[in-house]
Design a protein around this nucleic acid. Structure first.
Lengths: 150, 150
DNA sequence: CATATTCCCCATAATGTTAGTCGACAATAT
DNA sequence: ATATTGTCGACTAACATTATGGGGAATATG
């Protein structure tokens, strides 16, 4: 039930990109440095994200990557499926990568696993990079009107 | 987010064992045949389950394995953690295998992953082998009073 | 144009995990 | 005694993960 490190990198890098206010390009080296990710590895990840239409890129000085859509349009589920594959614990309950299982008709576990899948997907498909960013900002800066930590 | 095949084997074998009404021992070969699991592999799995106090065993003719506790006392979560490790998508939100992460304090993903973990654990820790068995029986035999499929 | 910067694509290596298989042995029932 | 069944440890083949590296193409700048 574990997220790969690669996927963790992808999500963290995307949140970082989404937090950037100005609309310019951000290069791999900078993101990699900030998030402590091996740059050449992040390169591969960004390429995948680009091919999936999540990022777009521009070469040369001042170039780099930027989000292709609004942060509110990119769900965590979308990214996770792209990097790690289906979120369902078993394929026979996956909506995006369903695969028939011979025991399916009489399997006692299947309906339970379906509940698990729905619970996971229910969260990950409803939360976007924008939502994550907001949470991140709440964590990092004390909201105005507050005097200090509670 | 995927269950290993090994874990799938373990769960299916345990449900099968729990469905057996008579209190005797059931041997590996029989379970392996019924559930279509490589016998020598299931051997390893049962040994692990035994060492964890879920199964007990007896050698010799008429021997085999049986559940060590009532089916209602064994949760799916317990079995899954034993075979596959923590159910949390990332270790820094695991209750049973927590591990500190350097980004923890400012991480935007963590609270989301915590929700995912809670959702998964909420289901898997509350459902027992007994629950699964009931579902299995419902699937396999049409309840009395019903004339046929709806 | 020359040059530096940055992304693009392919290959490959190091390491770890999964899903088994095997052989010899110990316990038990008849 | 012998057949049956579990116990234990080692081993392996295949695959996945986590990178690293070379060589190129696109682009901005002077």
């Amino acid at each position: 039930m574990k997220l790969s490190r690669k996927c963790d990198y992808a999500l963290r890098a995307l949140v970082r990109m989404a937090m950037q206010q100005e609309p310019g390009y951000q290069n791999i080296a900078a993101i990699a440095r900030q998030e402590d990710i091996p740059a050449r590895y992040l390169e591969q990840i960004f390429l995948t994200l680009k091919n999936a239409g999540i990022l777009s890129s521009k070469a040369g000085p001042g170039g780099g990557y930027r989000l292709c859509k609004a942060a509110g349009e990119i769900s965590l589920g979308q990214v996770i499926r792209l990097i790690d594959g289906p979120v369902a614990p078993v394929r026979c309950v996956s909506r995006t990568a369903y695969e028939k299982c011979p025991h399916e008709a009489t399997c006692a576990l299947r309906p339970i696993m379906k509940d698990v899948r729905d619970a996971i997907a229910g969260i990950l498909d409803s939360i976007t990079l924008e939502d994550a960013c907001k949470r991140a900002e709440d964590i990092m800066e004390i909201p105005p009107g507050r005097v200090g930590p509670a």
